[in-house]
């Protein structure tokens, strides 16, 4: 079918960006990272702007999440995770002694918990799991990376975890 219609461009119309890449076009461009070898992307959501999966049956997951309200501070989040792994809560002093890692330029607490994992909404726990994660606070907002999977699988991928975390960054407005 021949295209016969046209319209005049107004001088007030903002000029679009020619040659924009897909992330930019769909408002998806703020985060960039490298997906470690052997890992794959899982469907993302508002809660998980980066969502990756790994392992032979993709039983391991690793994702980035942002909570604008922070979810109650670093300690509360660490304890929430500990609870998911069926571990007792820790205190502020114990938190202070935990190792640190940098997530997108912000220093956060590095969490490594072993135990029986109960994912959100699940009724049964999975034994012999391991969780690695970083809880960072940025003003009011909380920034988290969390990796969960069978213990052996997570341990085998702990280097990939570090690699993923270091690759994560924000695309600067004029970037690329």
């Amino acid at each position: 079918m021949e295209i016969t219609h046209s319209r005049d461009i107004s001088q007030y119309e903002p000029k679009p960006k020619v040659g924009a890449y897909p992330q930019e076009r769909f408002g998806d461009e703020r985060l960039i990272w490298q997906t470690p070898d052997g890992w794959s992307q899982a469907e993302r959501s508002q809660m998980r702007p980066v969502n990756l999966a790994f392992g032979p049956n993709k039983e391991g997951e690793c994702y980035l999440s942002l909570l604008p309200g922070g979810g109650g501070g670093v300690l509360a989040n660490v304890n929430r995770w500990r609870k998911q792994m069926a571990q007792p809560e820790i205190t502020e002093e114990e938190l202070a002694k935990m190792p640190k890692k940098t997530l997108m330029g912000i220093e956060g607490a590095f969490v490594s918990i072993e135990g029986a994992y109960t994912s959100v909404g699940a009724t049964e726990s999975k034994a012999d799991y391991k969780m690695l994660g970083i809880v960072a606070a940025m003003g009011e907002a909380g920034l988290f990376v969390k990796m969960v999977g069978p213990k052996a699988l997570v341990e085998a991928n702990s280097q990939a975890f570090d690699q993923f975390v270091t690759s994560l960054r924000l695309r600067m407005p004029q970037g690329q």
């Binding site: 319209r7 005049d8 107004s10 119309e13 679009p16 960006k17 020619v18 040659g19 924009a20 930019e24 076009r25 769909f26 408002g27």
Partner: peptide, 24 residues
């Protein structure tokens, strides 16, 4: 979408967009 889809051919670029009709 924030920006249109772009294709390049013969030194020219073409942007394609799905939008609402605008009249001047």
């Amino acid at each position: 979408e924030f920006e249109p889809f772009t294709v390049k051919v013969g030194g020219m670029s073409y942007t394609l967009a799905l939008s609402r009709m605008k009249w001047k």
